[in-house]
């Protein structure tokens, strides 16, 4: 699997204020909090119902606290320059998404909390990852390897959601109370 455009979304447990988020994201750019990514600008789409919310546009990846599917969450979207084989890229995408969840949870005045029992994994590339059963099977080993690290000893359910016109989208559900920080630690161990 050669696709680069991998996306992971963790859902917010509580409402995150988009007004409060805009200065936080500007500060991330100013402070260069992601040392190996170039963060370029903040895009505020909070006026669009169920839209991408507030985003950081980056060169390698975008970060958004979006409302896609009418549910707020943190979405990390890798766009290019991901390194390693597909399994490594999948793991890296989860790691970066979780890092930003943890960073947002630690942000004063934002009261952000993310659930970890449900994740959406998407590949935004219809050419390299068509939305069909064969791609799901091709993706599954790499995804399961990352899920095994994230949720040791627990059975994660992977199901294809959405319609055929959409990019390949998988919902992962698992029974867990672990925090984003715990998951990040497991992945980094």
């Amino acid at each position: 699997m050669q696709a680069q455009k991998l996306q992971v979304k963790f859902f917010a447990r509580d409402e995150i204020s988009e007004v409060a988020l805009v200065p936080v994201f500007h500060e991330w750019i100013k402070q260069g909090v992601v040392s190996d990514e170039l963060l370029i600008d903040v895009a505020d789409y909070s006026h669009v119902p169920d839209g991408p919310g507030v985003m950081i546009i980056g060169h390698q990846a975008d970060y958004a606290v979006d409302r896609d599917g009418a549910r707020q969450g943190l979405t990390y979207s890798r766009k290019r320059l991901a390194e390693g084989d597909f399994a490594a890229r999948v793991q890296d995408t989860f790691r970066r998404a979780l890092s930003s969840c943890v960073r947002l949870e630690g942000q004063d005045g934002l009261a952000a909390r993310f659930g970890t029992g449900e994740v959406v994994f998407r590949i935004q590339d219809r050419l390299l990852a068509p939305n069909d059963a064969a791609t799901v099977e091709a993706v599954r080993p790499a995804l399961e390897a990352t899920l095994a690290k994230l949720y040791p000893g627990q059975q994660a359910t992977i199901e294809s959601i959405g319609e055929p016109r959409e990019p390949l989208t998988l919902r992962i559900t698992v029974s867990t109370d672990a925090s984003a920080a715990e998951l990040l630690a497991r992945l980094s161990a």
Binding site: V48, P52, A64, P167
Partner: peptide, 8 residues
């Protein structure tokens, strides 16, 4: 918009 832009 999804694959190359910001979905907008």
């Amino acid at each position: 918009a999804e694959e190359y832009s910001d979905t907008i």
